[in-house]
Write a protein that binds this DNA or RNA. Structure first.
Lengths: 186, 186
DNA sequence: ACATTTGTAGAGTAATTAGTCGGTTTAAAA
DNA sequence: TTTTAAACCGACTAATTACTCTACAAATGT
């Protein structure tokens, strides 16, 4: 495996486990099986490593989701596809997803310009706005619906990871959870 | 203000802002307006400070909630009182609540014996179990309902904090959110 | 009044950390 | 083949960290 890739992998795992400040660069290098200097050859600073790791992970989930919602024309099925594909990715890449959350609620978030952040969430908002403008949602503020949606999502993600369901059970639960959500917000 | 109390306050604020490892004891001492040595006189180690801060905060929220649910005999109103009082406390003490979450998802959680943790969540589980055994909930596993409940709670908490509502609006939203929740899980 | 404990201070220390540097190996280009 | 550049190494450094130590002040008990 490419050493830079190996650094990414190891760093992500350690950051999720012990936090950013709790993970020394020396430990990353050691566990990745490379020398200290090599790490700083690929990433000028620890901050840059953290930032690139975030951008990489975020790009992966975004690509995956966009791949799964494109083509769908009906707003509701598009919304459902968004919900389900996000859920699937976050379960299948739980460390990466956890890392994204960690980063987003950390002071390192400031390393990313607002413009980039907006751009990254564009596709979600587009789907949401379409449903909203077509009055598919109940008569509550859109940001409140977003809140309900987001946390329903997070809870179900956590539940599925925790209970390591079979592929079939998982599919069923995800569908059930979407129905529960839709019943709540439509 | 008592210096020990001042350390508690400052440490909590900084831990929430910058994380445990991101907050040096020297910074805590400086911002609390005390000497380095004084901090270590009151708390033998940084870990002990973190642990005591958690136990203190957790005790406060537990006391508050228990004060608000005692007396209620009907399981549903007791459940509602639990939901609403938790929400109110977490909004009115958002830093402390954030700290509790931070601690619980950190490696420091290991500092607390399982026995103590169980004891601390006893009263919540009691209320939940009572509703469950009286068939007030829909036909889903209790731990799944707990997941839905918890995340509905978290989302609404975040929403109310973010949107700084008036006392009246807040009360209404909390009630609405409870109805939404109840409709979903009952 | 005196003694003892407790609170407070801040300089000091050993360990750890992010990041550097000079040098060697590997790989690609000329 | 020779030259150039990129990848890699690990010892090193300056800064930071958790924590100690000694001394002094305040409170408390006798």
């Amino acid at each position: 495996m490419d050493k830079k890739e190996k650094i990414f992998d190891t760093a992500l795992k350690l950051f999720v486990k012990d936090g950013f400040h709790g993970t020394p660069t020396s430990k990353i290098a050691k566990e990745a099986g490379i020398a200290n200097g090599t790490l700083f050859h690929h990433f000028k600073t620890k901050d840059i490593l953290i930032k690139e790791l975030y951008l990489k992970s975020k790009e992966e989930i975004n690509d995956y989701i966009e791949e799964h919602i494109k083509g769908d024309l009906n707003p509701k099925t598009k919304f459902k596809a968004l919900y389900i594909s996000s859920l699937n990715w976050s379960i299948d890449h739980s460390d990466k997803f956890q890392f994204i959350l960690l980063f987003q609620s950390s002071p390192f978030l400031k390393l990313i310009p607002q413009e980039t952040l907006d751009q990254q969430s564009q596709s979600y908002y587009k789907v949401l706005n379409e449903c909203y403008s077509k009055n598919l949602f109940t008569d509550l503020p859109l940001d409140y619906i977003y809140t309900l949606l987001l946390n329903h999502f997070m809870g179900n993600k956590e539940y599925i990871i925790q209970n390591s369901l079979s592929q079939e059970e998982r599919k069923n639960l995800i569908n059930t959870s979407f129905d529960l959500l839709w019943r709540m917000i439509s």
